[in-house]
């Protein structure tokens, strides 16, 4: 019998890794952005497969639909002509490959090496997450109520499970401030003419 879970996992995981390699190996900025969009869409499929439906939908809407479209706009606003395609020197490749490859080996050896993560005994005792119903618990958690921990008897443990209302408020204000600041930074300048003298020092890097 076909193992459907493994099949779907490979269906999403292989494109994720291949497009990620393509982002790093490509020499064209626009092609890189499109490969990253494909890679992140495949990651959204992995989220759905893990039962995190709300996070997967957020990934598709905010990342693939918002952030990367913004990024493509940035590419179009800045990149012109010769700098669209970029080559990097082999010395850069070598050093970055050594550092990143060493990090990758450490991470992979940690994943494979720890007994409890690969053994089946732990996973059998843990109940499987009920797939596809994460919106209500996440929303209540953002309001400060952990509905999945209501049966916790220990009052000391309950105090630590008070939900995420404060981080939610902080990140909301953060998002607002950052968007206002970004709009202020990226505002359009107009041509300098004789009647409008420069009021700010030119942003020239040379002293």
């Amino acid at each position: 019998m076909i193992n459907w879970h493994t099949l779907f996992f490979l269906l999403f995981a292989v494109p994720t890794c291949l497009f990620a390699v393509a982002v790093v190996a490509s020499a064209n900025v626009v092609r890189m952005a499109m490969c990253l969009i494909a890679s992140l869409a495949a990651v959204a499929g992995l989220y759905f497969l893990a039962g995190a439906d709300f996070v997967g939908a957020m990934q598709l809407m905010i990342y693939v639909g918002g952030t990367l479209v913004l990024l493509v706009f940035g590419v179009m606003l800045t990149v012109q002509g010769p700098s669209v395609s970029l080559k990097i020197s082999s010395a850069n490749w070598l050093m970055a490959g050594l550092a990143g490859g060493a990090l990758l080996i450490v991470l992979l050896s940690a994943v494979v090496g720890i007994e409890a993560w690969t053994s089946k005994a732990v996973a059998e005792t843990a109940p499987a997450v009920e797939a596809g119903h994460t919106v209500a618990p996440l929303g209540m958690g953002l309001l400060g109520i952990r509905v999945d921990q209501l049966s916790q008897q220990d009052p000391t443990l309950r105090r630590g499970m008070s939900g995420y209302l404060l981080p939610f408020e902080i990140v909301s204000v953060h998002l607002l401030v950052v968007l206002i600041g970004a709009a202020h930074l990226a505002r359009a300048k107009r041509r300098r003419t004789a009647s409008t003298p420069a009021t700010t020092a030119p942003l020239n890097p040379e002293p």
Partner: peptide, 24 residues
């Protein structure tokens, strides 16, 4: 599941690190 997902996460992080270090 956990093992597979951690491998994918590690690969994404490592490839991102290589790209971040090698590009200007």
């Amino acid at each position: 599941l956990l093992n597979n997902y951690l491998v994918v996460g590690a690969v994404l992080f490592g490839i991102g690190a290589i790209g971040f270090l090698s590009r200007r």
